[in-house]
Write a protein that binds this DNA or RNA. Structure first.
Lengths: 347, 347
DNA sequence: ACGTTGATTTAAAACGTTTGCAATTTTCGC
DNA sequence: GCGAAAATTGCAAACGTTTTAAATCAACGT
């Protein structure tokens, strides 16, 4: 094994050339004689030379990294979002050799302060922001700072222009309603969360819009709300829905975890799905395929979305487009066995 | 909003001090007068100064990053491993303000070449390696390079000393056998994969060791092997086990995905779990709780393990201990409803 | 042989930080 | 008040790369 060449200077000395020439040769500049370029490339390959990132970043002002703040998670919460998202992002970035930086948030620190640190320290050329809140200081900061970023999700304030990719939850929830309505359902339940996330509104509004569009005054919608991570409160809210004097025949949940809870509670209450109750979720998490009788849901294809986000961000960084890049991805319907015709009169 | 101070020079000018003094003051050197230290700290806070990572890395030789190569994934495969692992790693690293770098592997590139690039470019002070293969060139490279790393998993070659944390699959599989044996089972099935991963051997050996330890010659073990990502072959292998002339009464799967497939195929074959067949998995993925009747398994607590790996790596980087750090984590038994007494004589 | 052009290479500055060493200021015993 | 020691601060080099501006070289027409 030959001694590893670690710096440009060493490589230059070995080749009896100046650092400048070697640097340019490796960068493929036309002004360097072709013969020299080839000679340098070969020597670099042989020596296993890899340019030092820090030095390159320092002088060029570009780190070749894209940053993301690790979402804070409840101690035992498992969901596949992060893994899928990171995998997709990696796939989107790899074409340009851009790596991903993940910064964790320490106890007591704010997510914004970590984001700030990532940006101001020059670690990243751009960042990805997920889980958009109704009032999101991260987006405000990034825009004011004029720092390249792409958000996964939208703000409700449509005047605030920025780069985003979002899953069209509104459309999906409208689709769910239409399908259930056509199956005879008139009394609906929606299980949602109390956290101020924008997707909550978008999806609920999509449902409401579809109801309005249908124009049938006999349609009724009951909404159950609970904090996202409070299992007890969630169960309670679901049971209020299930044990109301008049129970919905179809329940749409903001996302699969909630839908699975609905199915569990329904089973506990002696209801058979989909005979007595139709349930529809959103996200298509792995467990949805296994939970009996199989949850009908919408696939948000996180991985593919993240991949596109990565590509968008590279564009934003490279070209700094004047108009914001936006993209609304329509989720695909995944028909399983948790929905069916509305129960007839009496059971 | 005050104009942002971005460099030490600006800060120094504003304070009418030298760059050196400001740098040292921020680093908390005792030699700088306390009053000065406080004055500098306050000014830096006010101005929102964040040191430039590249410059710092360049001179100090430390990047403050820990690297990891993103595992290559089949296009539609979803598992929660990566998300949990990354979350845990972040938690383990955050105390030292160390961030995580994730490098994706491009089509046609080898994982080793990406790892090499991460190491040689000085992007990271240490790396984490997962999914250890029987012959793992990554470990060989890192050791030869004498680069700090911690592996999640062990090699079979115990002469090769390095830092690792592993889940004690051998113990778990022994435990599973003992429990099933005590429930009357004598005919066992093992569903495993054909990929050359070391955990496959460790777990299978743990099972075999427990059988030997019991010393009952009537115990029989049938092994079904299939490529990890070939769903068809997996189903086939499982069905060979289920439809053999003499069928095992208990099947242990290398990990939960396989166990879930076993449960599906068993149901398809008209078998009731656990009456006709006991099934035990490993990992405790989310779906295991939902798949009827609830999969009995072992929780590998990936997140916690990754957290410890992060902490170990920080130790390795900071202290370069002479003896390798190793840690064997015993998985916890998760008793659900997929196991029970061996079926009696005829059904 | 000699300027001139075009091709090729190089010296040196710059990026923002840390740090060895030296310079300056303060403190204190007498 | 004076000198020495202690406390505090600053100069300048270094990290490895990219890039501007300038130097060198080869070739060519005359």
């Amino acid at each position: 094994m030959p001694a590893r060449i670690t710096t440009l200077k060493e490589l230059a000395t070995q080749l009896d050339l100046s650092i400048t020439t070697v640097s340019r040769a490796l960068a493929g500049h036309q002004q360097i004689a072709l013969k020299t370029r080839e000679r340098v490339a070969e020597a670099a390959r042989q020596a296993g030379y890899v340019p030092n990132t820090a030095a390159r970043t320092l002088v060029s002002g570009r780190s070749g990294f894209v940053g993301m703040v690790l979402p804070i998670r409840a101690p035992n919460l498992v969901d596949s979002f992060l893994g899928e998202f990171v995998t997709g992002l990696g796939e989107g970035l790899v074409s340009h050799g851009t790596d991903l930086i993940l910064a964790a948030v320490a106890q007591g620190q704010s997510e914004l302060s970590v984001l700030r640190h990532v940006v101001e320290s020059g670690r990243a050329d751009g960042v990805v922001v997920t889980r958009i809140a109704e009032v999101d200081e991260r987006l405000a900061y990034l825009r004011e700072r004029n720092f390249p970023f792409v958000a996964h999700g939208r703000l409700l304030d449509t005047d605030f222009a920025y780069n985003w990719l979002d899953t069209d939850g509104a459309h999906a929830f409208g689709e769910a309603f239409d399908m259930l309505y056509d199956l005879g359902h008139r009394h609906f339940g929606l299980v949602t969360i109390s956290e101020p996330m924008t997707f909550r509104h978008l999806r609920q509004d999509g449902l409401a819009a579809a109801i309005t569009r249908r124009g049938d005054p006999s349609v009724r919608l009951d909404v159950a709300t609970a904090p996202r991570f409070d299992r007890g409160a969630r169960i309670q809210a679901i049971n209020r829905l299930l044990h109301a004097a008049k129970r919905p025949t179809a329940i749409v949940a903001l996302f699969d975890e909630l839908a699975l809870s609905v199915m569990e509670e329904a089973a506990r209450a002696g209801l058979t799905i989909p005979r007595d109750l139709s349930v529809i979720g959103f996200d298509n998490i792995a467990a949805s395929a296994y939970a009996p009788p199989g949850l009908t849901t919408f696939d948000a294809s996180i991985r593919q979305c993240a991949r596109e986000i990565g590509e968008m961000l590279l564009t934003v960084i490279g070209e700094r487009p004047a108009a914001p890049l936006t993209r609304l991805v329509r989720p695909t319907f995944v028909s399983r066995a948790s929905h069916g015709p509305a129960p007839t009169g009496k059971n």
